[in-house]
Simulated assay, not measured.
Amino acid sequence: MEQCLEQVARERSGHTAVLHNNLLYVWGGYMSVGDDEVFLPHDELWEYDIDRGVWKVFQTTGDGPPSMSGTCGCCLDGVMFIFGGCDDNGQTNELYSVDLNDGTFTWKKIVPVSGSPPSPRDKLSCWLYAGKMVFFGGYGHKVLSDLNSSSRNFIVDETSWAGELFWGWNNEVHIFDPKLLSWSRPQTHGRAPAPRAAHASASIGSKGYVCGGRVMETRTSDIHCLDLDSWTWTELAPSSAAPVGRSWHSLSPVSDHSLFLFGGLSVDCSPMSDGWLFDTDTRKWTQVEHPFKNKPRLWHTACPGSDSDVIVFGGSCDYILLVDTGHCNDALVFQTQPYPLSSVDRVSERVESHIVITSTPG
């Protein structure tokens, strides 16, 4: 398999990234070339060694996804899954996988044997629980017949519809079982979050959390919890001042009762670089200091690493709907908890290799 050493992944936004064996794998997204938006090659898979600070790129083969942005990615048992996204033909609802363990990096298009996949969408999120993938929300289109049967779970975007196709935001929950190759849709209870896209999500144990996102013409900072055993929704009213509303931010688990929020696009369309911790027990938000206040990011990825680190890669430092030139390719490592003494030497080496790496202005 062809590799290129000592390179740095290209700048991008709207990509997918997962962490496996302390290696960060990055796929897809788009960048700007002149006045054009260009999708990154679909047959490239970038690998970043967290400890060594070294990039490799692998040329993938097989029946893989087209070049896209806004996909939803996750890693289960060393297999990277890609669902949904948007390409030159619009949103899709296809599911693909690539094994990160065997060294061949061969894509497979997954054809379900039972159940129906979600309607085409992008800017959604997912949780992993009990060996299954649980998908939530997103922006996409439905046909009129489906729209009539899901009016409470779908808000039509009045500015985007054509004939029998209606675009909009949803708050649906869908489950994919990779062992049975089956799609299902659970009956949820409680008051679900408003339909949304470009939100952030994370899971701790049997709880899935959703924070903020684009809800019609506004951006929120509300936080909701879905019990993945009882399928019951609960809105978590904060006990302290909360972050401002935002979309295209990230949310990462950093302990058994805390989540780390970073960046995003504010209600007034300002790229942000603030970091917050949310305590799921006390429901308290706490703003935290970090060394990347001069690096606003939106539509980036964030992966929980070892020692409660969070690895943020790529994204944009501009309001991409207007400027779309500030795509980045640096990896920012956030230390959210004190390091154990046993890892001090390893951590000092890792920090030196992370903080200063090639990046675009931002």
Rank of each mutant, 00 (worst) to 15 (best):
M68A: 08
S69C: 09
S69Y: 12
S69M: 08
G70L: 07
G70A: 09
T71C: 12
C72E: 07
C72T: 15
G73A: 12
G73S: 14
C74I: 07
C74F: 05
C74S: 09
C75H: 12
L76M: 09
D77F: 02
G78A: 00
G78W: 02
G78F: 00
V79K: 05
V79I: 10
M80S: 04
F81Q: 04
F81G: 01
I82H: 01
I82N: 00
F83P: 02
F83R: 01
G84F: 01
G84T: 02
G85M: 09
G85T: 07
G85N: 10
G85S: 08
C86H: 10
D87M: 06
N89A: 14
N89V: 08
G90K: 11
G90C: 11
G90N: 08
Q91I: 08
Q91H: 10
T92F: 00
T92I: 08
N93S: 11
N93E: 12
N93A: 05
E94Q: 08
E94H: 01
E94L: 01
L95P: 07
L95W: 01
Y96W: 13
S97G: 02
S97Y: 03
V98H: 03
V98I: 15
D99M: 00
G103E: 13
G103H: 06
T104P: 02
F105Y: 15
F105I: 01
F105Q: 04
F105D: 03
T106L: 10
T106R: 11
T106I: 02
W107R: 02
W107N: 00
W107T: 00
W107V: 01
K108L: 05
K109W: 01
I110G: 00
V111L: 03
V111Y: 06
V111T: 06
P112S: 07
P112Q: 03
V113T: 10
S114D: 15
S114M: 07
S114Q: 15
S116E: 05
S116C: 10
S116F: 03
S116M: 07
P117L: 04
P118I: 05
P118F: 02
P118L: 03
P118H: 00
P118M: 11
P118C: 04
S119N: 06
R121P: 04
D122M: 14
D122P: 13
D122N: 14
K123Q: 15
L124P: 08
L124D: 04
L124K: 07
C126I: 15
C126T: 11
C126Q: 08
C126G: 06
W127P: 05
W127D: 09
L128F: 04
A130H: 14
A130P: 09
G131S: 09
G131E: 11
G131K: 01
G131F: 13
G131H: 14
K132R: 14
M133L: 14
V134E: 10
V134F: 05
F136H: 15
F136T: 13
G137N: 08
Y139P: 10
Y139Q: 03
Y139T: 04
G140A: 12
G140I: 08
V143Q: 06
V143F: 07
V143E: 13
L144C: 05
L144T: 03
L144R: 09
S145D: 11
S145I: 06
S145Q: 15
S145V: 07
D146G: 10
D146C: 06
L147I: 12
L147S: 09
L147H: 13
L147R: 13
S149A: 14
S150P: 06
S151T: 06
R152H: 11
R152Y: 07
R152W: 10
R152V: 09
R152G: 04
N153Y: 14
N153P: 04
